[in-house]
Design a protein around this nucleic acid. Sequence first.
DNA 1: ACAATTTGACCGCC
DNA 2: GGCGGTCAAATTGT
Length: 289
Amino acid sequence: MAVSASEDAPSPATADLKERIIRGLAQGKAMAKQLQVLLPHLGSSGSDVLVARELTANILGSFTASLSELGSHRVSPRDRTRSPKPRPRRGCYKRRKSSQTRTVVASTAVDDVSWRKYGQKQIHNSKFPRSYYRCSHKYDRHCKAIKQVQMMEESPPLYEITYIDSHTCTSDGKADPTPQQGSSSGPLMETRPPHALAEAEADNLDMKEENITVTLDMKEDIITGSSSVTALQAKEEAKEDTESDVTGMEINSLLMEAGDFHAESSLYPGFGMDFLVADDDCVNSMFYC
DNA sequence: ACAATTTGACCGCC
DNA sequence: GGCGGTCAAATTGT
């Protein structure tokens, strides 16, 4: 971040200091002027010399004080412009290589878990920056949960959210809102088997339209978990394979339609939104409206 | 004063 | 060496 000096508003302490220095300099200037006026008329009388000496001493004192103030001035962090000073080398850290990850596509990146943003980065070949969040309880409860939010489309807003590791900070009774894989564990899960979903889709959508077919093929991949592609990847693939111009809006609306078949908004507290899960090893990935 | 966010630098992996 | 993930100082908000 480049911060120009002009953008910095001085802190009250600095403003006070500046005022003192200016006052000192102005005083010195005024006395020098007096001395200048006095000099041509300076006689050899003792009083004239005394006045001149006094003025000189005062000017000297005033300027010395001002210079001293300047010299002793410690720049406050606020007023300091960020300069590329050498930083101590940071400790080595390991990048997570094989953590439990889940990818979700949602219309909002907000959930009811307390996240703290720790970074943002422009990703290669990506229109929007990726934001990095860690659980607010990383240190006090040693929670390892992390999420990455990548905006895929602006309007309608579509986010690809990757959850890395699940929350271990839920001792307060709050359910872990991180969407869990729904296949085997969840008594909450009421998903249809993948083939039933595909049949329902076929019944409800016109399969003759080529672009719709393409979209459904893509959607089936996501829903059934036959591959772990995200909506974005699927969209790209669909574009490449068929040259059809499936828009994000179309994908979204189709996903919504399909979601009606097995909407279950209470599955994931904190995810009262449209989302779609593409687990690494998903079997019964799902989404709802 | 403290917490949260921003942002450039650093670091490891490919 | 490029890229993406993380760190931490600086900045902003409450």
